[in-house]
Computed example of a mutant assay.
Amino acid sequence: MIKTYVTLIALVLACNSSYAQFSTAVLGNTTTNDNVGIGTQTPINKLSVLTNNLGGISIKGNSGTYQGSDFFIGRTSTSPVVGYSPCIQFGEESTIYGALIQSHQGQFQFFNAAESGWHESLRITAGGLVGIGTSTPDCSLTVNGSFKVFTNNNSNYFLYNAADVVLKFSERGTGGRAIVHDFDNRLTLNYNGDFTGGTLLGKYAFFTENASGTSFLSNGNLAIGTTNAHGFRLAVNGNIRAQEIKVEAGPWPDYVFKPTYKLPSLTSVKAYIDKNQHLPEMPSKTTVAKNGVKLGEMNKLLLKKVEELTLYLIRQQEEIEKLKSAVNKKYRANN
């Protein structure tokens, strides 16, 4: 095998260095000046090989492990080559060590030998699109399967494995599954809390989870410590601590102090309490246990009751003053 390589190289070098000033035709092979032609009498390169449709240059081993085609360049109709396209082949398909590069209609195709035959591993289209694992790329780079991009000896990487996007930047932590196409056709960010610092959306929308519960944002409603906001803009399963809470509620019950307001008599109020065991207009114990309390509405009702109570006290004081005046008047009359 080595002898074959040496002989071919020596032939090329000899032709290149001799600058022969003659032309000899033997079975279609010609040497003209410093060019060598095989199958042509007008070689235009240092070595020109002319075939009709098929054929080319090949180097083969002739015995044992190295028997078979080691290198071929030219045209062939053997699958997977299409339409006698020019190709370069290394090794044989049957050895599973083979590889083949083909140029067809402006595109490059790269094949690897496998047990089931040639397998196309990469294609570059005439338009410059690159496909890995696919023969029909539709983007600048189309990959059929998983792919990984890494730096710093694999310490930092981007990985896509058909369902998950995994990120890691070693200087900031272990990273993990950043984006997952989850069950129930759900998009999951920070799957299973792989990013232990939580999830930040934009600049201020931050979500984290721990043993006390999970925060959710759905349909514009925020649920904290629960998965169901029950239609409220904010639902919290637990205690809330705040420096101030502003509730916009109206109309405010100052109308109680207007002269036209009809203050219920204490007799009617007592009758209502005896029957229902709570003040008029106030929610019952059962209602509160079931639906909770609306802070704005409850504050209005409480203020209304305080204002009504104030009117009762004012009227009572007026009655007391009248009684005191009558008693004093009678006392003076008797003394």
Rank of each mutant, 00 (worst) to 15 (best):
L266D: 02
N45I: 01
E93N: 05
V49L: 12
Y66Q: 01
I320S: 04
Q21K: 13
V236F: 11
Y97F: 01
S268G: 00
V288Y: 03
S325N: 09
T78D: 14
A25Y: 06
K285N: 12
N239M: 08
G68L: 00
G39M: 13
I44L: 11
F110K: 09
E308P: 08
S85W: 00
H104Q: 05
F169D: 11
S140V: 14
C87E: 02
N328F: 05
V130R: 10
Q105T: 14
G238P: 01
Y272L: 01
S69T: 12
P280E: 00
L279N: 02
I59L: 15
V149S: 02
L50R: 12
K168E: 12
Q277P: 00
Y19M: 06
S284D: 04
E248P: 02
A178E: 02
I124G: 09
F22V: 12
L323G: 00
D254S: 14
R177G: 04
G175E: 09
Q67F: 04
D34Q: 10
N192L: 10
D254Y: 15
H104I: 03
P283H: 07
Q316R: 06
G74N: 11
Q89K: 12
V6C: 09
L8T: 12
I88A: 12
G225E: 09
Q109Y: 05
E120A: 14
L295M: 08
Y84C: 10
I224L: 15
T174D: 11
P137F: 10
T196G: 01
F158N: 02
T30P: 00
L309H: 13
N62W: 05
T4R: 06
R233I: 12
V26A: 14
V36W: 10
A25P: 00
G68Q: 00
Y272A: 02
S48C: 07
A14C: 10
V36A: 07
S170D: 12
D274S: 15
Y19W: 03
I88D: 05
Y272G: 01
F158Q: 01
G64E: 01
P283C: 08
A211R: 07
F207H: 06
Y261P: 02
S265H: 09
F216C: 13
L11T: 13
A162P: 00
K46Q: 13
G117V: 05
V12M: 10
G91V: 04
N190D: 03
T260W: 06
N185L: 08
G250W: 13
G117K: 04
E92G: 02
L50F: 10
E120Q: 15
G61K: 02
G131C: 12
I132F: 11
K290F: 08
Q109C: 09
K329N: 11
N334K: 15
D274C: 13
Q107C: 07
V82G: 05
A326G: 01
K324T: 07
I73W: 06
L100Y: 03
Y160N: 03
I179G: 03
P264M: 04
G98S: 00
V166K: 09
S170W: 05
G220I: 03
V269W: 02
Y66K: 01
V288K: 08
L279F: 09
T76G: 08
W118K: 03
A242C: 06
K46A: 13
